[in-house]
Simulated scan of single mutants.
Amino acid sequence: MATLKNQRLPPEVNRILFVKNLPFKITSAEIYELFGAYGGIRQVRLGNASDTMGTAFVVYDDIFDARNACEHLSGYNFGGRYLVVLYHQPAKQARKLDQTKKRQELELMKQKFGIE
């Protein structure tokens, strides 16, 4: 029987979790308490701007702890809200940012040449 540490993990699994649908009044201490039950946490970053309220990044010391937390807390009801817990995927976000930048450049070109 293989131990947990010897299991092969999907490529998207990493130590950083992105959490959405958090109560707006949640504190870092509450996140540490909730997510810390699944392993050592290196860092918590709460969204504090108007467009990032209710989100957080949780960085675990160990990838297996992050996976365990993701599996157990995704869909968990906390403060009357069901949490959405995902693995942070910087490459996916970079592609999205790149597409946004290309759309903006296209709109500028359309304006410059009077194309609608």
Rank of each mutant, 00 (worst) to 15 (best):
residue 39 G to P: 03
residue 44 V to C: 02
residue 35 F to D: 10
residue 3 T to E: 13
residue 41 I to P: 01
residue 37 A to V: 07
residue 29 A to Q: 13
residue 25 K to C: 08
residue 41 I to F: 02
residue 9 L to C: 04
residue 29 A to H: 10
residue 21 N to G: 05
residue 14 N to E: 03
residue 15 R to T: 07
residue 14 N to M: 04
residue 25 K to D: 15
residue 4 L to T: 12
residue 22 L to I: 03
residue 7 Q to K: 11
residue 27 T to G: 00
residue 34 L to A: 08
residue 16 I to F: 12
residue 34 L to D: 09
residue 45 R to T: 08
residue 40 G to I: 05
residue 11 P to D: 11
residue 5 K to V: 04
residue 44 V to P: 00
residue 22 L to H: 05
residue 21 N to T: 04
residue 3 T to G: 14
residue 18 F to L: 14
residue 22 L to S: 05
residue 13 V to H: 05
residue 41 I to C: 05
residue 33 E to P: 04
residue 44 V to L: 02
residue 30 E to D: 10
residue 33 E to G: 05
residue 30 E to N: 07
residue 33 E to V: 03
residue 11 P to G: 02
residue 27 T to Y: 00
residue 22 L to G: 06
residue 36 G to W: 04
residue 11 P to R: 12
residue 8 R to Q: 12
residue 6 N to S: 14
residue 31 I to L: 15
residue 28 S to A: 11
residue 14 N to W: 00
residue 29 A to F: 04
residue 35 F to Q: 10
residue 9 L to K: 03
residue 38 Y to F: 15
residue 12 E to Y: 03
residue 43 Q to R: 15
residue 41 I to G: 01
residue 26 I to Q: 04
residue 31 I to M: 15
residue 23 P to H: 07
residue 19 V to W: 07
residue 20 K to S: 12
residue 11 P to T: 06
residue 40 G to Q: 15
residue 45 R to V: 06
residue 27 T to P: 01
residue 18 F to W: 11
